[in-house]
Write a protein that binds this DNA or RNA. Structure first.
Length: 324
DNA sequence: AAGATACACAACCGCTGCTTT
DNA sequence: CAAAGCAGCGGTTGTGTATCT
């Protein structure tokens, strides 16, 4: 026999989440962690099915989610990954830790699809950066080759980023006329911080957040935005400010190592704790969903370090080859 | 100003693989 | 081992907002 049913469909609420529901859900997750979704509706009293609770958390309430304004680099990465992986949005999202699969999927369907169509109609070339998957190679052989490649690429990336310590990011800094990578301390959104404060404290902070963010015209969005804002306050992140900085510094060189670091964390055997795996119960799909992609990593190296070289090319900074 | 249409995105639906009993 | 549930994923829909006519 199987398990008892998780929730009956009778009396289950549907539609947009209210701030109150968000609050209840977040409070529950603060206490118990994001897992055992089956128990969430019953223990919280939420008239939602566990699936809805899980989706609301993973797609909206989870800390560290960046919303809106995809950067050019993110766009390129998505296009490239989509070309490689197809519509495996969860796998694609695992390369963009701050974006949800739903977000990426929506962005693809509403923006990138059209953009690509337009471009392809224009000159026949794709935006994927000229990546070529050797389809003639038999699948098994191709995968084995990729396994070897990914190992080598990871090693090279580790060396390039000097990631000998966990939870360290690399930053590109000018030094004596040339650029070099130096380690950064972990940003506030990372797993080094305490994700949840005490329950009552957070509830009051949430409410405080709503008081400071009066409703705008778009009710549903306002609710969600203010909740997210409050939750980010609560957990020590601020998506709006990080969003601002992200869009303002489209060519922010620190973004590349961050993304590349997430690549390095793909290996589940690494001691680093990724954002995803940090949350107990939130099963990390990274190792499962990642196809070994040597070409991807090569492309990332080209894309980010290559662009660094391009950006620096006009500066009298000396040899940039040490970046790689 | 009002209706029509397009757009953006949150949420739901249904399927699949894995886990539990 | 089989049956049933769980969790995750991708596709699709619904709804609010913006823009156009």
């Amino acid at each position: 026999m199987g398990r008892p049913p998780c929730c009956d469909k009778v009396g289950v609420k549907k539609g947009p989440w209210t701030p109150e529901e968000d609050l209840i859900l977040v409070s529950h997750i603060q206490e118990h962690g994001p897992g055992n979704w089956r128990a969430v509706p019953t223990s919280t009293g939420l008239m939602r099915c566990n699936k809805s609770c899980r989706l609301r958390w993973t797609n909206y309430l989870r800390p560290g989610i960046k919303r809106g304004n995809f950067t050019e680099q993110e766009e390129k990465l998505i296009i490239h990954l989509q070309a490689l992986l197809g519509n495996r949005w969860a796998a694609i999202a695992s390369y963009l830790p701050e974006r949800t699969d739903n977000d990426i999927k929506n962005y693809w369907n509403t923006h990138l699809k059209k953009k690509l169509k337009k471009l392809q109609a224009g000159d026949g070339s794709s935006m994927s950066g000229g990546l070529s998957c050797d389809q003639s190679v038999p699948k098994g052989q191709w995968e084995r080759r990729l396994q070897t490649d990914i190992h080598m690429a990871k090693q090279a990336l580790r060396e390039a980023l000097s990631l000998d310590k966990p939870n360290c990011l690399a930053e590109l800094k000018p030094s004596n006329g040339s650029y070099s990578f130096t380690k950064l301390s972990q940003p506030a959104t990372s797993s080094s911080m305490t994700p949840y404060a005490s329950n009552t404290e957070n509830i009051s902070r949430l409410l405080e957040g709503w008081m400071k963010n009066p409703p705008k015209s778009r009710a549903a969005q306002t609710n969600s935005e203010s909740t997210q804002h409050s939750i980010n306050n609560m957990v020590g992140t601020d998506s709006s400010s990080s969003e601002e900085s992200a869009s303002a510094a489209n060519h922010d060189l620190t973004a590349a190592p961050t993304m590349l670091e997430s690549l390095l964390n793909v290996d589940s055997s690494t001691p680093e704790m990724s954002e995803t795996s940090f949350f107990q119960g939130e099963s990390s799909t990274i190792s499962d969903s990642h196809m070994p992609l040597s070409s991807l990593e090569t492309w990332l190296l080209d894309e980010f370090f290559g662009s660094v070289k391009v950006e620096l090319i006009d500066m009298p900074l000396g040899d940039t080859t040490e970046l790689i």
